[in-house]
Design a protein around this nucleic acid. Sequence first.
DNA 1: AAGAAAAACAAACGACTGTTTGTTTTATAC
DNA 2: GTATAAAACAAACAGTCGTTTGTTTTTCTT
Lengths: 195, 195
Amino acid sequence: MSSIARAPRSDNRLPRLLDEAARLFRQKGYHAASIRDVAAAVGMLPGSLYYHFASKEDLLVAVYEEGVRQISDAVVVATAGQSDPWRRLEAGCVAHLEALLRLNDYAQVVIRVLPRDVPKARSRLTLLRDAYERLFTDLIAALPLPAGVDRRYLRLMLLGALNWSQNWYHEGKDTPKTIARRFLKLLQVSLRGEE
Amino acid sequence: MSSIARAPRSDNRLPRLLDEAARLFRQKGYHAASIRDVAAAVGMLPGSLYYHFASKEDLLVAVYEEGVRQISDAVVVATAGQSDPWRRLEAGCVAHLEALLRLNDYAQVVIRVLPRDVPKARSRLTLLRDAYERLFTDLIAALPLPAGVDRRYLRLMLLGALNWSQNWYHEGKDTPKTIARRFLKLLQVSLRGEE
DNA sequence: AAGAAAAACAAACGACTGTTTGTTTTATAC
DNA sequence: GTATAAAACAAACAGTCGTTTGTTTTTCTT
């Protein structure tokens, strides 16, 4: 008895479904990308999608989960190559930004679709974001900093500046790597005092 | 002849219409707030709204325009009271953040509704945003800074960090004033070097 | 080859969307 | 007081939305 479950079929279209959902959520935003858009992109009927996901919100959460996984991996891999705390943070920021601005639909959805815009999934999305940000909490915790520096605000400022770049970045100008380094430089030097 | 036009009536509901639109766009976002929501909040029928605006996008643009006007005024007034460049920038950031996080539906819409989410109005919204940001370009241009500091990136970093705060701020904890000051402090001191 | 589960189809449901049209009310100006 | 323009009503249009239901096809397992 029992073993009613069976392995997924080899022609499973779920991966492509997620890919197209990520692409469309990134391109149009959550509300503007419809179930019908996603289904058409995969080449299936709108209703068929509900075999894989119970609701549109659940589909978004699945994309989010994959996005957090991918961007986390990118940051972990990038920082693993460095030992100096500042260089580790730099590598993490560069990886974060490259995923965010260029190469990753899933990661871009994580930053572009704001939890408050999807009330029914808000708490789940926020949890996923927070889990990711903890990587940066750790990177910043390892920094040798002058006494009195609030590490929480350092994280909020740095990640806020990086994430907001989705709103002004245009391919072709400065690279993500350059941007991340410029931001970090602004924090490292003192802007006050010497003219 | 000619003078076919006449002054608006004194019981004009257009101001309230804009107020409710701002409130709902801020609360639910652009896509989730429907024409019917706005009309119901004002106490008129959905179709009546089209006497005042040709489209939903036009309504958003009107709210945006008022938002930029109000937040610009707040920043101008706040900075006018200061003469030292750094204090002027600080006052501007505090005013920006207070409008953004607490007291102004219109201003919150300007930051919360992203131009890329409303393709048909995108260029107009971006123009309005850019006009506002120029205030900060000026404030930063007046700063005495070490040679080699990129003022454009300073603006992008600072405004990015401030704007993103809409995503993590919760009433009751730190005040907007505190947040703005902490961010500026992080830029003013050197985080590298002295332990 | 036969049975079972996975996956998709086909077709609709009801609700909601932004918007248009023709008409009516209402304040204002002469 | 009467013409006029401002403003809103009333009612619908055509389309889209997320979703459900019942059925069929397809692959895997034995």
